[in-house]
């Protein structure tokens, strides 16, 4: 333990407003603390550059999964364990369940939160690809009011976001898929559990009249931020399913290799990430074609 406990202050507001007031009064001075599964690791290693923490864990306003006929809205403090066991999410947004399932292991899943995973800004986080594939939106709230931001615009650079120092993430909203759709999620991690992604890929597609009417591809660990592979998406979107043959897929794989900007680090190499992303895209497209042809 190299963190400095004595120099730390933790404040525990009892209401969301109370929390927002503190963030507003001393902008940038307080670090939101949710489940602590990111912050505590850095703290213990003695590398966390903050010492004042705003403890959100008790704020019930930030909990709960709410569903309407169109959308599912998850409170900022929703844990992986809650996502993992939610029947509606399992049925309609399976990528989210899979993201939760492959995150850490049980003890992490009981503590880690969805908003924390997003706000932490790690390019290797595992819910972002699914959230990108589902076109999620993030609600940011401050004393001044609240705003919904499309999640794809949330990250602006490595560990940088559009969130203002006085804002909190309060909810994450995902639209319920309609029609004939296909979901794909694959994490290629360093091991089967307790693993950091080397490549993570999530996709959502909807077919209409023999064509791919909608296609979103979210990726992790292949760029400074979680990203959508836009060129690849454009290539696939609108295509007749019949035409998604081997040759097309080979082209899509090449496009994806251009879309992403992976790096070498202690966990993997850029060339591995590039090639495996492409290969998993191949798997995804094959499975998608099979799935839509079956319908």
């Amino acid at each position: 333990m190299r963190g400095q406990v004595p120099g730390c202050t933790v404040h525990t507001p009892t209401t969301l407003i109370g929390a927002l007031e503190i963030l507003f009064a001393e902008k940038g001075a307080w670090r939101p603390l949710a489940g602590g599964t990111d912050l505590m690791v850095l703290f213990a290693a003695g590398v966390l550059p903050f010492s004042r923490f705003l403890n959100l864990w008790g704020l019930d306003e930030l909990r709960g999964i709410e569903t309407t006929s169109d959308s599912v809205s998850l409170g900022a403090l929703t844990t992986y364990a809650e996502i993992r066991t939610h029947p509606l999410i399992a049925a309609e947004l399976p990528n989210l369940v899979q993201s939760a399932w492959v995150t850490g292991a049980m003890a992490i899943q009981n503590r880690g939160t969805l908003a924390g995973n997003i706000a932490n800004g790690s390019p290797a986080a595992d819910t972002p690809p699914s959230l990108l594939a589902y076109g999620a939106e993030v609600q940011l709230q401050s004393l001044a009011g609240s705003r919904w931001v499309p999640y794809e615009n949330f990250h602006t650079g490595y560990k940088q976001t559009v969130m203002l120092p006085e804002e909190l993430i309060t909810r994450i909203r995902v639209w319920r898929p309609k029609g004939d759709n296909f979901h794909f999620f694959r994490k290629v991690g360093t091991r089967k559990a307790q693993a950091i992604s080397k490549v993570c890929l999530a996709a959502y597609a909807r077919a209409e009249e023999g064509r791919v009417a909608e296609f979103r591809l979210g990726m992790g660990s292949v760029a400074p931020v979680p990203m959508r592979a836009l060129t690849t998406e454009m290539l696939v979107q609108g295509q007749a399913i019949e035409e998604l043959d081997g040759q097309f897929i080979a082209g899509a794989k090449l496009a994806l290799m251009e879309d992403i900007r992976p790096i070498d680090d202690i966990r993997s190499t850029a060339s591995y990430r590039r090639k495996v992303s492409a290969n998993v895209l191949g798997q995804l497209l094959e499975e998608m074609v099979e799935r839509f042809k079956r319908a």
């Binding site: 505590m40 213990a44 003890a107 009981n110």
Partner: peptide, 13 residues
Amino acid sequence: GKLVNSCLVPAVQ
């Protein structure tokens, strides 16, 4: 009632 890693839980929580 939930399994946690006590090294990651801030005592205040």
